[in-house]
């Protein structure tokens, strides 16, 4: 359930998370929806054979899809009146099909800018091998109470 979050409610050090398993049907649906014209180039995202043909041990999740899941973490947390201003993500290693992931957010700073409540967050995906395939920073504007 997505609830509205207000600037006055958040403090540096606050954390939140969502769980996500990168299932093949979901990845295939994303690739079909957004990369329909990518042809053979998208094989590494959808099949074992396609992954092995480019030297990967398992099919992987498109980087932008993983970024969309980190974005969802933030937009779910901030609620309908929040505004995502920027999200800046580094791709450090592949997200593989079947990975069980935690999407995590950590508030690192809060400040008022021209009356707006600005919150800075570290965001990352952590897999079940203890690795962080995606790591980044998001800037959000939250409404005031």
């Amino acid at each position: 359930m997505v609830e509205q979050r207000y600037f006055e409610q958040v403090d540096p050090g606050d954390e939140f998370e969502e769980q996500w398993t990168a299932e093949t049907p979901q990845v295939a649906a994303y690739v079909e929806m957004n990369m329909g014209g990518a042809g053979a180039a998208s094989g590494r995202f959808t099949s074992q054979e396609g992954a092995e043909s480019v030297g990967m041990r398992k099919p992987i999740v498109p980087g932008v899809m993983s970024m969309c899941l980190l974005t969802r973490l933030v937009t779910d947390w901030m609620g309908p009146q929040g505004k995502l201003r920027t999200i800046d993500v580094d791709f450090r290693r592949p997200v593989e099909h079947g990975d069980q992931l935690r999407a995590l957010g950590l508030i690192t700073d809060t400040e008022e800018q021209d009356g707006a409540g600005i919150v800075k967050l570290d965001v990352y995906l952590e897999n079940d091998r203890g690795e962080r395939p995606l790591q980044g920073v998001a800037i959000v504007e939250l409404p005031r109470q």
Binding site: V2, Q26, A29, R72, T75, P80, I87
Partner: peptide
């Protein structure tokens, strides 16, 4: 496909009384 549940993106009725008066596209 992405499992979005924020009513701003999914619920026409709820979004009508939200900040934009209607559903909007998720940033992703």
């Amino acid at each position: 496909v992405l499992g979005e549940t924020n009513p701003l993106f999914t619920d026409d009725e709820a979004a009508a009384s939200g900040p934009y008066g209607a559903v909007i596209a998720p940033p992703g």
